[in-house]
Amino acid sequence: MTINEHLRVFAGLPVAAFDPHAAPPADPAARAWRVDTDYDGGDALFALRLDALLAADWAGRVEALVIGQWTDNAYDCSAPIGQLVAAADRLTGLRALFLGDQVMEESEISWIQQGDITPLLEAYPALEVLGVRGGENLELKPVRHDRLRELTIECGGLPASVVRALGESELPALARLELWLGTEEYGGDATVDDVAPLLTGTRLPALRHLGLRNAEIVDHVAAALAGAGVVAQLESLDLSMGILTDTGASALLAGQPLTHLTVLDLHHHYLSAAVTDRITAELVAAGVEVDLSDAGDPDDVDERYIEVSE
């Protein structure tokens, strides 16, 4: 899988590119505003566009913001977290933020330089949706945030320190959590022990969707989920895009019931026909919508790979 298309919809709103020269919108809250640059404009064009948005007399009515490419040099320039934190007194209506909506032609996902996202959560206590793409230099400290409902982190390798910080955070409103754990080759060094605190359910009482995707360690995660307290409260579970084999799927099926789920996403897997047949018989027949598409050869160990790495 490659990320080859920018977000068209974010936080339920159509995404529109911000144009400093356009007439003011009739309803700034009706769009998710995208701020970015290109290879010709580089850092200067991004700064011009962001500054113009923040200077607009309607900036306080913006509810959703998508930050795309912010530089022409993905290797050396970190995400504009500091600028966004400093702008909190102008973006007073912000409820949703996506940081790093960059496609393959702009930057490989492993090149996107992030930073410490903790100050964003601290600066925007009313934030409800946060999406982050890229794991290079990504940091998070344990934090309490009472309004965050959705958190997505997309990367080819999620640092274990970020996973542990999430497990130590207090996020009482979080209903959707999606983490791309990735591969150790690209910094995804989290173990199932690092993930375990997220699976108890005690710190995430509102969680209804859990995605532990794109994971090299998905067999271990599936086995841990077999007895995890969080499963009973979920409506949907996503273990797609990783290296799921019969070992992990069989452990998951041997654990607690999954028939209460509405959706189980396992696409991009390495399961045998016997196990997929068992999933169909036990879950699909019970009304669970199961995605078993994009099947790899379960016998070709050397050709197993997560869907997104570089």
Rank of each mutant, 00 (worst) to 15 (best):
1 M>H: 13
4 N>L: 04
12 G>Q: 07
14 P>H: 02
15 V>Y: 04
24 P>I: 00
24 P>F: 00
30 A>S: 13
37 T>E: 14
53 L>S: 09
53 L>D: 06
63 E>H: 00
64 A>C: 07
74 A>I: 11
74 A>F: 04
76 D>R: 14
77 C>L: 13
81 I>E: 12
81 I>C: 03
87 A>C: 09
90 R>H: 10
92 T>M: 05
94 L>T: 03
96 A>R: 11
101 D>Q: 12
114 Q>G: 09
119 P>L: 01
124 Y>A: 07
127 L>E: 05
151 L>E: 09
152 T>R: 14
153 I>M: 01
156 G>Q: 04
158 L>Q: 03
158 L>M: 02
165 A>S: 13
166 L>M: 08
190 A>F: 07
193 D>T: 12
195 V>D: 11
197 P>G: 09
200 T>D: 13
208 R>T: 12
209 H>Y: 15
217 I>P: 00
218 V>L: 05
228 A>I: 03
229 G>V: 03
230 V>E: 08
230 V>M: 04
238 D>C: 12
238 D>A: 14
246 D>C: 08
255 G>Q: 08
258 L>Y: 02
273 A>E: 14
274 A>Y: 08
274 A>E: 14
274 A>R: 13
276 T>M: 15
286 A>R: 03
292 L>I: 06
293 S>I: 01
299 D>C: 01
